[in-house]
Design a protein around this nucleic acid. Sequence first.
DNA 1: AATGAATGAGTATTCATTCAT
DNA 2: CATGAATGAATACTCATTCAT
Lengths: 218, 218, 218, 218
Amino acid sequence: MQQSDTAGRILHVAASLFAEQGFAETTMRQITAKAGVNLAAVNYHFGSKERLILAVAETYITPLLVNLTQRLEERQALGGQTIALEELVEMMMRALLRVDGQTQDALAVFTRLLDLAYMGPQQALRDFLADKYGLRLQPFLMQVRADSAPMNDDEFFWRLHFLLGSVVFTLSNFKTLSRMGQAPGEPGVDLERILHRMVPVLAAGLQARAETTQFCWL
Amino acid sequence: MQQSDTAGRILHVAASLFAEQGFAETTMRQITAKAGVNLAAVNYHFGSKERLILAVAETYITPLLVNLTQRLEERQALGGQTIALEELVEMMMRALLRVDGQTQDALAVFTRLLDLAYMGPQQALRDFLADKYGLRLQPFLMQVRADSAPMNDDEFFWRLHFLLGSVVFTLSNFKTLSRMGQAPGEPGVDLERILHRMVPVLAAGLQARAETTQFCWL
Amino acid sequence: MQQSDTAGRILHVAASLFAEQGFAETTMRQITAKAGVNLAAVNYHFGSKERLILAVAETYITPLLVNLTQRLEERQALGGQTIALEELVEMMMRALLRVDGQTQDALAVFTRLLDLAYMGPQQALRDFLADKYGLRLQPFLMQVRADSAPMNDDEFFWRLHFLLGSVVFTLSNFKTLSRMGQAPGEPGVDLERILHRMVPVLAAGLQARAETTQFCWL
Amino acid sequence: MQQSDTAGRILHVAASLFAEQGFAETTMRQITAKAGVNLAAVNYHFGSKERLILAVAETYITPLLVNLTQRLEERQALGGQTIALEELVEMMMRALLRVDGQTQDALAVFTRLLDLAYMGPQQALRDFLADKYGLRLQPFLMQVRADSAPMNDDEFFWRLHFLLGSVVFTLSNFKTLSRMGQAPGEPGVDLERILHRMVPVLAAGLQARAETTQFCWL
DNA sequence: AATGAATGAGTATTCATTCAT
DNA sequence: CATGAATGAATACTCATTCAT
């Protein structure tokens, strides 16, 4: 924020625009204009739009994982073999809120990034994320599975993504949804409440007994 | 379908491309080239790209709702005050699969449409969908609520969207996910299995006891 | 020239600018501005700058080869086993002048194209030219070799390129050279004179006795 | 050459890149990156890209002319009024090879420079070269003319450029040509052989009888 | 003597849309 | 009913150069 800090301003503005409009919909012109810097500055500092996206992403993902890992380790240090699923989900929610608490854009950027990674043919982005963050998430996932209903790897993989879908969709569309739903009040409080509301739902989903029979119901 | 049917061919090709690539990523040139019609034909027949999207959407949404409504009514006619949640969710899944069974694009288009509607500033699209389909969905939602855990309107509104998120995300990214997960087998069967897997998870989520106390946990 | 003819005007203007400045140095903006058409018109009609270059090239190369082939066949029909080298070189020069007589740009474009093809890593362009025109040139080259000094394939290959160098360099830089040299007079006449001047020089070069001994003179 | 020698490293790297890619195609970023110096260093040390080109050129041209002049004077000191044309051409070729023997880039830079000077509207470059080197070349040219066929100034001027064209084109495109031609063997030896092959061809061209009659043959 | 940051002018290309026919 | 041609606005990106330090 001192002494010009062009790169920082770009990062900040880009995050805000990405959150609001999405990656593809946000143009370099918008970013640089709003940041009050030269059009070429993004390419100078980040190389390309794609690398800017990655830079913004790192800004949010790294602290999130650091925070989550730390919370988990602290809790595990307290002892007790299994940790209640609801507590774990809450842990994740708190980590999400924490990283968002500062910029208000983190969650939206985060979820748009997942959308981008899962959608199209962005194999490169998937690899980048998997390489960089996949491992660090392992311990948390192990702990989650320990208190879920018993199920094979396949089932667990898919359930994880069902939940991920709930989170991503809700966060992605939070602004729109809270405008639609009758929920009034300041957005800061609301987001917390919504995440809180998800906790029992997600936990129940993970603990639902897995179907074992193969039943073709069409 | 015979003779010329320019508009029909456009509709069909557009659906396929939209499903594969998304709306913004699909260009008029691609559509018209693949359909073997003139570049200007889309604008001539549909007015604009946006209205083409809507036209494609209607193609899929209307039959979906017709099908769902019909199944529901048939089941209600059988008597029995409440219908099990799992049965209702299955009903929805079957309706989804039914409309997809014919073109293989329906689900992708459908979910991309929801993404589009919820994301960005597409108020017009939201209104269009709400006006056109909101009411027809009411009976089904009422029935769902009847067998869910007791909760107020707010809570129900949000839970619905949590579930919607699971479905949309899973369907949206089905191709990517099934490539990532170890799930082998032909895709046609797989999609069915995945939707089947969602049933108990979603039902459990709806039936989880709603938090009543307001507990600020940050 | 009738009824707008945007593509034609682009072709014409592009040839003129390419001849004057070279391919890379000529921008789409220059072309479209000078042609009085929209900036996107080049891409609409030709697809890309590269394909425009090829289109311009074809405009000149095809008539050149047609003309040369025709002259050669007429001459061969007259009988006489061998044709004097000077006559063959003149034949080529006339063909060059013929195609240039109409637009005054043909020669410059032609030579810049060769430069482009031989220089950089334009394997694609080389292949395009070889595929399209290589064969049609064979009969002429055979006839040339018949009256050259006896030499092996290697030697002939290189001599051909020595001569090609003379022609390309002279034509490429004709404007500059005629400004440098004291040669006054109208340019139209001058070019003819210069090409005429090359005839005995090139013929003598082809008829020079080939070195047979391998003599390392450094 | 020790310590830092930013300017020297730039000069060296630039020569190599210019030789490989051409002047316009070589960017300041490439040069400074490969030289491991700051992007602004070129402008700091040389003022502009154009002046860097000139500096590189001088590096090669000056030694070339020194070498050629020296060889000529030594030969003239041996006495004998006229020197055979082939010997003179060989002298030039040896001088060319000599300057190239050290960096392998000299010839390519040299010919690209001539291309640049003759082509486009580079009057400034032409003047620079003429001023700096024109005079020193005179004695050699005089000697060449002495053993050429009798001809007026005009004719001699143009023949010189025909030959220059052969040399420039061949050297410019040496890499491409040797890839095309069946000529095998290591490139170092090949270049020598090719230049050797040019000697009798160029000499014969200079000795061809000049046309005296003005014969309009179109 | 040298540099990191920044910039303005430029590049080819792409897009949905329009219009005369 | 349909189309070929054309367009204006936008896209990401690249370049040589400059300037404060």
